[in-house]
Design a protein around this nucleic acid. Structure first.
Lengths: 196, 196
DNA sequence: ACGATACTGGACAGTGTGTCCAGTATCGGT
DNA sequence: ACCGATACTGGACACACTGTCCAGTATCGT
């Protein structure tokens, strides 16, 4: 019964389409891509595309979902050995981003800033959960604002780090991020508070 | 010489188009809108549209530019009477956002999160400038990271505040934002640090 | 080897774009 | 109040992309 796993042809076609999506997103940004572009780049018939995905967004979602699993695993792993301070999601995320820079550029929306909602809500969940652990659930607007604050900051920092590929290591950027998040701008910028 | 100011007809048409853009963005998000939609809503011929703006993005940019001026003025005003702590941009921004909720929803990209680059870079400039004042310009990556961090956090918090129209006043949300920004999550969430 | 399944390429109607034009309405200045 | 300048209109145009369908062909799994 060929029901369960996958036909080689299917796997091959889907892989091609996803790779093409990567290349094109990196090249000219997600919104500028057409289904025709993807099929040409992937060397796949356009009708074939539609037998796998209903449209462009669907392809992106599927691609993201697949890659999200490994991240989930890493985060959970690190979560068990969690220390008193810091987020458990940020470290793995920065490392993963560093290792697969291109892919993350795609996930983050390429040159533009077209963040897919799946990633956003996934990370929001992580952050909210970890903040709740720190706080005890008081559940109020305060928690929600802090969550939004952290999520937005995290995306923007990551986006900057990926685009301007500086020499900062994942550990370094993570340390800076956590310091800003937990101690604020004052601690980081004001005079003699060491950061190194 | 009719060169300088503006023909009534021109003003009227442009105003209609911008108003239509507001309504439609609020209604179904910027990307989902077509030029035809705008013209129908504005009751303006489609050919007329193109004599004023080359495309949808152009209309949005023009609309934003106009409304940015008042904000610029407010921020500059508050900047002169600046206190030791806090950002001068955030207060006026929150107030303006509160007063013109609909318009800001449009500026922020409506239901979706399609932030126009003009706003982003304008605020980035403000933040970088103010952080430099705090820090003295050391110019390093540290300043840049802090800037990105704050910008991202600000957008996300504002977006949340606008979409979930809670009962928080501009002053309240601003206070929370500044506290998170300058003192970090610890100061806000950890136990007895009062926020009210 | 053979039945099932996936790919192909081409055609289709539908929608939106951006440009052009001739006809009509409205403006601003004298 | 008039008249030349300027702006709006609606319709037509070629073009690009979408999403669906189908008959023919290649490749799969067993």
């Amino acid at each position: 019964m060929p029901a369960g796993p996958i036909d080689r042809r299917v796997a091959r076609t889907r892989s091609r389409l996803q790779q093409a999506l990567f290349r094109l997103t990196a090249e000219k940004g997600y919104t500028a891509i057409t289904v025709e572009d993807i099929c040409r780049e992937a060397d796949v018939g356009r009708s074939t595309f539609y037998t796998h995905y209903s449209d462009k967004d669907c392809l992106r979602k599927a691609t993201i979902d697949e890659h999200m699993k490994s991240l989930q695993a890493r985060s959970a792993e690190r979560h068990s050995q969690r220390n008193a301070k810091g987020f458990s999601f940020s470290g793995p995320m920065f490392e993963h981003a560093h290792a697969m820079r291109e892919m993350h550029r795609v996930l983050m929306g390429g040159k533009k800033r077209e963040m897919p909602e799946e990633i956003r809500s996934w990370i929001s969940g992580q952050v909210r959960h970890e903040l709740t652990n720190i706080q005890g659930d008081e559940g109020g607007a305060r928690l929600e604002i802090a969550t939004r604050f952290i999520v937005g900051a995290f995306f923007e920092v990551t986006h900057w780090w990926l685009e301007k590929d500086t020499k900062l290591s994942p550990a370094e950027i993570d340390r800076m991020f956590l310091q800003l998040a937990f101690n604020g701008v004052n601690a980081v910028l004001a005079g003699p508070t060491r950061i190194e």
